[in-house]
Design a protein around this nucleic acid. Structure first.
Lengths: 256, 256
DNA sequence: ATTAATTTGTATGCGCGCTCACAGAGATCA
DNA sequence: TGATCTCTGTGAGCGCGCATACAAATTAAT
């Protein structure tokens, strides 16, 4: 209930704005295309723009000096990212890169702040967005502190199910395809360990794995391993709903 | 520069309010005393109050089913905590407990939100606070993902120096006393490992340890280990400044 | 269709860090 | 001052997960 509101609220932030304010934002906003692997922003970047993903997929990550990649978040179409830029406190410490070819709408921080000041709804919306993501990060932090690789992987699968899960006959299908390497980068493990663990979980009948595809057969049992409530999953994933709503909203607007 | 602003901003949030609004808040606020070890709030708690620590020390933590304690943050006098309560989205997932005997000023979320609506400064301040803490948590998450126990401990010491460090002749003294067990709970390790690592760091001349006391002899070298800039430390710690300013502010107000 | 690049599977050794167990040292309170 | 409790130091054993190495299976590119 409260959760669902959040997911929609993310992009509908902009919908609640008046037409004049929207026009103001759109005038300032710049749409840019990024090819696979290219960076949207990097650490110690002074370009303080709030970003909205129109198409593609973005990875928020930071790489260790030894060359390991830590994925902090994945952004799907219709989602906002780089929102900490509105607090001009930022040296952005992280890096955003296009996981696949993507187009991004970028709004300079100054302009965004200006509109925010005249629109309490937007201000509150941003606050909630930041707070929501903070709660999510805290959950991940807790999950990392004292958990084994296996538990971390289970927790990740449950979280992915919540966001990308689609109910099918055989179980919950993840509408996102991630390589073992990417999974490892999210939970701070290695590719080989993930391969092994996925194999084990499959043997135990908890999941089925195909190439870059995961089908969760017993979401409840998986969630129980990490003492989490099993998320509610419908026959269409949150991520898909969000993206579709976003496309509808923007296409009608762009026609005008 | 931007950092310093943040630290003050935390408590001075309330100072920027008009007298009538402050009076409104104070009428609704309730001051409560907590004995050592008692809980201010617990997971799945519906008591959505924003809390301000007047005296003592609070631990934000969550305990694993195996009984291990994970410390997510430490709160000092003059600091706000439980601020996610203002986004009534919350099931609070964490637990706040008094590390020592403490007194807390609690403001019901509804009242807080009401004042926030009529005070953009407060709203912006809270947003920045939440954002600032989110940035801090993200840094910790990065630090946990691919780092050894030793590196995690070094990172923690650097962070503690930033907040609790006081410049002395021999080095930077931490104005907070934490047991090895507590340090371990922050970095997700064990008491024994921390004991060993502190001993090693001492042998290497990086720090000096006494009972519950740490003196950092070479902050820059310590920071270099975890590729962090060495924080600026004066002869009085941020935490002390904050607490003192807070006491001044409240004492004058309470006299009226 | 062939080549190149990416993804996945598997096995071996080894080291970090956890568990368990115990002892001394320092606090705290009667 | 003695008793109890908390904090710190140290060692032995061991298992998880990493590093490394190699090969097969898919996909992408030309």
């Amino acid at each position: 209930m409260a959760k669902a509101f959040w997911y929609i609220g993310r992009w509908s932030l902009f919908q609640r704005l008046g037409n004049d304010q929207l026009a103001e934002l759109e005038k300032k906003a710049k749409q840019r295309a990024f090819s696979k692997g290219s960076a949207i922003y990097v650490p110690f970047d002074s370009s303080d723009s709030v970003c909205l993903l129109a198409e593609g997929r973005i990875r928020i990550c930071s790489s260790t000096p030894e060359g390991k990649l830590a994925i902090l978040a994945l952004i799907e179409p219709g989602e906002i990212f780089g929102e900490l830029a509105v607090l001009n406190s930022s040296d952005q410490e992280e890096r955003a890169e296009a996981a696949i070819a993507s187009t991004v709408i970028m709004i300079p921080g100054d302009d965004f702040r200006k509109v925010m000041e005249s629109s309490p709804e937007l201000a509150i919306g941003i606050t909630k967005l930041i707070g929501f993501r903070r709660a999510r990060i805290e959950r991940r932090l807790r999950g990392l502190l004292f958990r084994s690789n296996r538990e971390r992987l289970c927790q990740l699968l449950v979280e992915l199910a919540e966001q990308y899960g689609r109910q099918k006959e055989g179980g919950v299908e993840l509408t996102i395809s991630l390589s073992h390497q990417e999974l490892a980068s999210v939970i701070g493990s290695t590719r080989e360990s993930v391969t092994m663990l996925l194999g084990e979980l499959q043997l135990e009948g908890l999941i089925s794995v195909a190439r870059k595809r995961v089908l969760i057969r017993h979401l409840k049992r998986l969630a129980a391993i990490v003492q989490l409530p099993a998320p509610v999953v419908t026959d269409v994933s949150r991520s898909e709903v969000n993206a579709e709503l976003f496309r509808l909203a923007t296409s009608t607007r762009l026609k005008e």
